[in-house]
Design a protein around this nucleic acid. Structure first.
Length: 773
DNA sequence: GTTTAGGTTTAG
């Protein structure tokens, strides 16, 4: 390869053949004798590598500028250089703008672009075996020079890193350091987010660093003290008698996990960055130095098992569920697979206010921590999804005395992430690649396995969370486990088929097909009283049914409500809101009877804070809309009453309810609430026979998703789709259909006077696990 | 080609 590199400009001449002589660019003409001559110049422009597709294959154009000797004044002559073939390719890889090159074995030809670019009347052409390029990398672009493009091929040290004890006020530097303290990005009074870091290095100096960046995501990704950071183009300032680093125009950062054993993978949002073997070495050295020489570095991370009362600590955990308590406080239910000897305070919260699955009961009292997140941290907490892995910084364990059942007083721990950013207080989601996540997952897994062996544990759903299903971009496999207490021999599907109902069987089978394919078609309404299953009306049907009810309604009054009447936007109708004056103590939400609103209007009015009930007037009295429409709206959720079992027509005052939810309200109104159920028909196959089995009564626990949630949660829908794609991989998939352990119930039903035998999958739950790709 | 912050505990 005729491209050579060298990192010291003073050594350049050493490599040149002794017979070569320099020829200055200004003396070069098309008639110059070039044999035995070399030119030296700085690369001021480097064009793209062009693939010509002919015998020459590659072409690259560059511009070099005269490098005058110190004794001479610069006359800044530039010349076009055209490289051909393999040399063009090598040049493209090994040379950057700003490098100094020595060229020989070239030919000279008139420049066809001289009229336009006014550079040099000639071009230098480098082609064939005689052509040589000798490169000297530009000196470290410590201050102000434009950044180099990404290349890992060049052996030359492109960047110079200043030890932290050698910072000079007013200079611009590149540094490497180990993070000893950090604050997550917080909004400033200006336009940017600010994050602060404290760095140290083997020089022993400790330097504070302030990062300003408009975009929160582009701040350096630090997850814990001990992480390694590389900063390019930051300026040194003196503040309070100490050197500090501040970002300035063109700054960039790479961060690395600080563990000696973890792979050296830079974390960055930058699309391109320079990363060489030198960087690899720097990171490794800093990690090793920190592991042995940095004894002052204290990791404030504490597992839940080791948390002491009044302690401030960092917690690495998984989010199980969350609930917004008020505008300044969000509850996060988290675990890390370890148990404390002291029980934790459980914050009471209505099940429908909780996003995510979280088993309740005594088993979780020293395992699942209820973390109260306040003020400025609420926004971050609200964006988290159950299943995510988190780091909560400077969490406060507050001991609290609570009265026990037997009048004694016992101490429990409550957890608070207080407002503000001091002490690095805050929280963030951890990426799945984090070594701490891998460690956490192992702890969760082993904790879940322990619980699974314990039939009395109410927490076995937790094992569901230990799978990597929540990690983006990871596909996963599903299996099923039986959760029944039967000790039955496994039988073949042929055996089940030939048996008479009723009966319970354990089988092992594959899903040959399933119906319906579209999730919304699986959802039905079910009355637990009369066992009726109804289809859920589509929006068009609902619009029509509301339209009829709205037509002949006149505002009327109810003594137990405050009523307000307004015109619709087009003034064609009136909408009356009857706000119930009776509401449970400690409830901010309202029960509102809405008269005269169309389906779309009531959907628009509906929010999580209020329960809306559509009503109409009938002979001066308020009555429910009697056709099959939702009787209750709350946010995106809609609830139906059973036509057969709800005898009440007139709306009455709702009193004496302690907690408001769809169930208590429907009872209070004298309506029979219909449940959402997910109905699926599986065709099972085990080689001996095929058998149709329904998933109906146990579908919620099978999928770990409530059917009601499926009506409005995109996330729940995606979860079920993922499970089905795993149990019955799509046609284009290379994945095998898994063999499933199933518990089947065989029973007889009367359908239109005919006795039919049905089969249901019962007591069975899916379990996910990540698939390495 | 400009500013912001400048670690240091809520008070639920």
């Amino acid at each position: 390869m005729p491209v050579y590199t060298d990192q010291d400009p003073l050594n350049m001449d050493k490599w040149l053949p002794k017979t070569l002589q320099s020829i200055p660019l200004h003396t070069l003409t098309a008639k110059s004798e070039c044999a035995g001559k070399y030119v030296k110049g700085k690369v001021v422009c480097k064009g793209p590598l062009l693939n010509m597709g002919d015998h020459v294959k590659y072409l690259l154009k560059s511009v070099i500028q005269d490098v005058p000797k110190q004794s001479q004044a610069s006359n800044n002559i530039s010349i076009n250089v055209v490289l051909f073939g393999g040399l063009a390719k090598d040049f493209s890889h090994a040379v950057n703008q700003g490098d100094v090159v020595v060229l020989w074995g070239f030919t000279v030809s008139p420049s066809p672009t001289f009229g336009k670019d006014k550079l040099h009347p000639c071009n230098l052409n480098l082609n064939g075996a005689e052509a040589h390029v000798h490169v000297c990398a530009a000196t470290a672009p410590a201050a102000g020079t434009s950044g180099a493009s990404a290349t890992v091929l060049k052996p030359a040290a492109k960047y110079k890193y200043v030890p932290l004890n050698a910072l000079k006020h007013g200079s611009q530097v590149n540094v490497y350091g180990v993070v000893t303290f950090f604050k997550l990005p917080f909004p400033t009074k200006g336009t940017d987010y600010c994050s602060t870091l404290k760095l140290t290095d083997p020089s022993g100096a400790t330097v504070c660093c302030t990062i300003f960046c408009e975009n929160q995501e582009n701040h350096p990704k630090i997850f814990k003290a001990g992480d390694v950071i590389r900063l390019h183009r930051v300026k040194v300032q003196t503040f309070g008698g100490a050197m500090t680093l501040v970002t300035c125009w063109g700054w960039s950062a790479l961060t690395f996990d600080g563990a000696v054993s973890s792979p050296v993978v830079p974390r960055t949002n930058n699309k391109s960055f320079h990363f060489s073997e030198e960087d690899q070495r720097m990171v490794t050295e800093l990690r090793e130095w920190a592991a042995h020489g940095l004894t002052a570095l204290r990791d404030p991370t504490v597992p839940l098992s080791a948390v002491l009362p009044k302690q401030y600590f960092d917690l690495t955990c998984q989010l199980l569920a969350k609930a917004r308590l008020d505008s300044a406080c969000t509850l996060l239910k988290v675990w890390d697979g370890t148990r404390n000897s002291c029980p934790f305070l459980t914050i009471p919260v209505e099940p429908e206010a909780l996003e995510g699955d979280c088993p309740a009961g005594r088993d979780g009292q020293n395992l699942i921590a209820d973390v109260l997140v306040y003020d400025n941290h609420v926004e971050v907490a609200q964006a988290l999804k159950p299943g995510m892995f988190l780091c909560i910084y400077n969490l406060h364990a507050v001991p609290q005395a609570v009265p026990g059942e037997d009048c004694s007083v016992r101490e429990v721990l409550s957890f608070h992430l207080h407002g503000g950013a001091s002490y690095g207080r805050g929280l963030c989601a951890l990426p799945s690649s984090s070594p701490d996540v891998a460690k956490l997952q192992r702890a969760l897994q082993s904790c879940a396995e322990q619980m699974e062996g314990d039939m009395n544990s109410s927490l076995d759903d937790l094992s569901w969370f230990t799978a990597s299903q929540f990690i983006d971009g990871v596909t996963w496999e599903c299996q099923t486990v039986r959760k029944c207490t039967h000790t039955l021999q496994k039988v073949s599907l042929a055996h089940v088929k030939s048996s008479s109902p009723p009966g319970v069987f354990h089988v092992e089978a594959q899903v040959k097909s399933y119906q319906p394919k579209r999730l919304y078609q699986c959802l039905k309404l079910f009355c637990s009283q009369c066992k009726t299953i109804e289809e859920i009306p589509d929006p068009a049907t609902l619009r029509a049914r509301f339209g009829q009810a709205v037509r002949d309604t006149r505002p009327c009054r109810a003594a137990w409500a405050d009523s307000v009447t307004t015109d619709t936007q087009d003034h064609s109708r009136q909408i009356t809101l009857h706000v119930s004056s009776k509401s449970p103590a400690h409830s901010d939400s309202k029960l509102i009877f809405v008269q005269g609103a169309s389906f779309d209007e009531i959907c628009h009015l509906s929010s999580d804070e209020e329960f809306l009930i559509p009503v109409k007037s009938s002979r001066g009295k308020l009555t429910f809309l009697d056709s099959m429409v939702p009787f209750l709206f709350r946010g995106k959720r809609q609830f139906y009453g059973c036509r057969q079992c709800s005898v009440r027509r007139l709306v009455k005052c709702v009193e004496g309810i302690e907690v408001w939810n769809e169930r208590s309200i429907s009872e209070g109104l004298g309506l029979q609430l219909m449940e959402y159920v997910l109905v699926m028909k599986f065709e099972l196959d085990d080689g001996t026979a095929t058998l149709e089995a329904l998933l109906l009564e146990d579908s919620d626990s099978f999928f770990h998703v409530s059917a009601e949630e499926l009506t409005h949660s995109q996330e729940a829908q995606e979860k079920i789709q993922k499970i089905m794609d795993s149990l019955h991989p799509p046609d284009n998939s290379t994945l095998q259909r898994p063999w499933l352990e199933l518990c089947l119930s065989l029973y007889a039903v009367d359908e239109n006077g005919q006795r039919e035998v049905h089969c249901q999958i019962v007591n069975t739950q899916t379990r996910g696990s990540a698939v390495e790709q």
